[in-house]
Amino acid sequence: MNPAYTNKEMMALAAGRLVGDGDILFAGTGLSMLAATVAKRIHAPEAVVFFETGGIDPALEELPLAVADPRVMSGTSLNSGLIEAFAILGHRRLRTISFLGAAQIDAYGNINSTCLGDYHRPKVRFPGSGGACDAMSQAHAVILFMQHERKRFVDKLDYQTSPGWLSGGDAREKAGLQRGGPMAVVTNLGVLRFDNETKRMYLDECFPGVTPEEVADNTAFALDISRAGQSAPPSPAELTALREQVDPQRLILGPLPA
């Protein structure tokens, strides 16, 4: 029998499984830190984590709580700044994979991290793009983290902070974006991907105990669930790495499962 686990643990591990060995990971904080670090500990030891603040390949003996945390400056191969970090993000020879979260997402993976309501007098203001628009514009690929709710998976964004596949098909290329785009969306219910041709989101995997219908019900736009499989539950080795090596203080993971 598999051990009990939390949603956050499943999300971090599901995203970590998408990382390839040798990938250059443009990490944010929160779940993306966990995903990048756990992938390095389990199956992608050659993956390199870097931060938009300029910290390249830190030791990460403690989890950073922000991308400017002094923990991203310790045991690095290079300490630099924003210009140097962005020179890595868009470099044509590198497979840079970025992790991002957002307040809203649409069917083509465009995201909003700026505001709800009218831009000029928003109901709710969020921090803004930061490097999100840049990662969505220039990274080799992006993995998105979302809470799976109808108010977040919307037909139309209140504000399009960062370009995903725009209106789908070849819209992204036509707009002048040379590469990249979102490759997957990891939510508390499963993993979604984008159709090769239409670039529209579809359900790829449900987490254990989740039905495809449940995912569709929590999505405000029409979602293709015909291709949905099941995610493997966390293995004991994955959970051990995550809990004992990556976030022993449970700063991001939060409480253990009941």
Partner: peptide, 21 residues
């Protein structure tokens, strides 16, 4: 501005958020 926040302590800076809203 590109981003107003202090990581986990205030994912969106608090007075900034109120001033914009």
């Amino acid at each position: 501005i590109a981003y107003g926040g202090t990581g986990r302590f205030a994912p969106t800076c608090i007075r900034f958020r109120q001033a914009v809203q």
